[in-house]
Design a protein around this nucleic acid. Structure first.
Lengths: 134, 134
DNA sequence: TTTGATATGTTATATTATTACATGTAATAT
DNA sequence: ATATTACATGTAATAATATAACATATCAAA
């Protein structure tokens, strides 16, 4: 747990705040654009902060969208594994939490004689709001 | 099934052959480099062929690696969904087939009032060969 | 044999991410 | 208090991944 309570640097905190306030995942250069007023000028500053935030589990990357999202799960047990529901209509992304996907994947992997460590899962479909409207 | 038996164009076939012969997933520019001798000169030609091959289910993209892999499953029922086991040690990638992951994810999604359409799953760990060596 | 759909070729450019290197900062050990 | 250590920053340049725009070609179906 030590990692999770570690103090963040200015750049890291600025970027985490932005992601936490955002209703949707943000791309690295969108982040850069948004915070140039706060003194962050180069892509590298953004990527470095993101790397650290990902490492400590505060932020996840959505691989298929090259986007980054703050982890709303205060006791996120998946600092490495991620599972998302992604709406194909409105692009809303929600993180699946408190599920037993890891143990399920662990079993599935074993059948192929593969030792599970972590996973990324991206499920596409229609969120509850968009389902209604159709 | 019509799509799966559709005739491929030269570029598409060239790139599919390369991917099928490859022991590992390939990146777009690696493909480009490999086939320049065969007349394909620009990234766009590669990406267009890949798009088509992905559309018909002959090739899958591994999102977290920006890499492309031929589908070895001759009757691939996942033209859109993909599930991979990725070895963190040797980088070997195998596709999970004939599993009921889709129906499982469908149920998991329903619990969040989300209508499942498709998924990408990337499981990281140790393949059977690398497990032995440790 | 024109039409419509799809594929190609080519150039340029957009988007995403990293390398390399100099400098700064803050905690700890001497 | 200062040298050492480990990170964090700043900056410029560039690498890696992917798409836009537009002209031309192919080829099957009406």
């Amino acid at each position: 747990m030590a990692l999770l309570t570690e103090k963040l640097t200015n750049n890291q905190q600025t970027i985490l705040n932005l992601l936490e306030e955002s209703k949707e995942p943000l791309k690295a250069y969108a982040i850069l654009f948004d915070i140039q007023k706060k003194g962050i000028k180069s892509p590298l500053q953004v990527y470095r902060a993101l790397d650290k935030l990902i490492e400590i589990g505060k932020v996840h990357k959505i691989e298929s969208k090259n986007s980054y999202i703050a982890c709303k799960n205060s006791h996120c047990n998946s600092q490495t594994s991620t599972s998302f529901l992604i709406c194909e209509i409105c692009d809303k992304v929600t993180e699946l939490k408190k599920n037993n996907l890891s143990s399920y994947f662990s079993k599935v992997s074993e059948k192929s004689n593969f030792k599970y460590t972590k996973h990324n899962l991206e499920i596409y479909g229609e969120c509850k709001n968009c389902k209604k409207k159709i």
